[in-house]
Design a protein around this nucleic acid. Sequence first.
DNA 1: GCAACATATTACCGTACGGTAATATGTGAG
DNA 2: CTCACATATTACCGTACGGTAATATGTTGC
Lengths: 109, 109
Amino acid sequence: MPSQSDDLFRALADPTRRRILDLLAERGTLTVGQLAEQFPDLVASGISKHLMGLRAAGLVIATRQGRQRLYRIDADALAEALAPWLAKYEPYWAAALERLRDLAEGREP
Amino acid sequence: MPSQSDDLFRALADPTRRRILDLLAERGTLTVGQLAEQFPDLVASGISKHLMGLRAAGLVIATRQGRQRLYRIDADALAEALAPWLAKYEPYWAAALERLRDLAEGREP
DNA sequence: GCAACATATTACCGTACGGTAATATGTGAG
DNA sequence: CTCACATATTACCGTACGGTAATATGTTGC
């Protein structure tokens, strides 16, 4: 019986799937074809398979529009899956994240 | 050329490795034997192999003490590896984490 | 030095995974 | 209705992965 966390981390394990998520996070909504354009080394059906994987893990939602399918991140599901794990490790990443934010705003340490 | 993120998420992909990290996060420092006790279904050398994987990903550090080896989380490395990805997805998990914290403190929504 | 112990390393095995190619399904256009 | 298009599904392949068993390395205690 695979747990919520299992699905999440298994989905995140593959670099292609992570990049798909990145693209969806940046652009909000993309079709399979638009995503496939970003992966010249992969065949389109490969992307489709990865999207199925992300959908199975509940990280992504598809809505039909004409003959294409619009994918977007399932924000609630991603948040719910991630939060418990993040809470457990908060002491580890909190400081680094702060530092990263300061750096992005050009502040000095 | 595997990136920092690749190593991190690959290491986190396996439930056994995640549980090893959990145990180290809770108890601070553990020997291979102490860790192996927590996995009755696995042989000790299997744990050792997973620890090597975590060490290779830079998430864990070992120090020798007598004939045993003490493992602990490499807090800095974990933080540095995790922070950039977390920053990218902060809008997604921030609210859920807040909710989780409130819940833990018994607050009402 | 040697026996017992803790961990690491190697060799090996089955299976799951990521990839492609081929085929199927569903939809808009003419 | 039919053709072209967008995506999904299936079948198949090589490889990477997690696991065990066997062996090697290094350390303490006698």
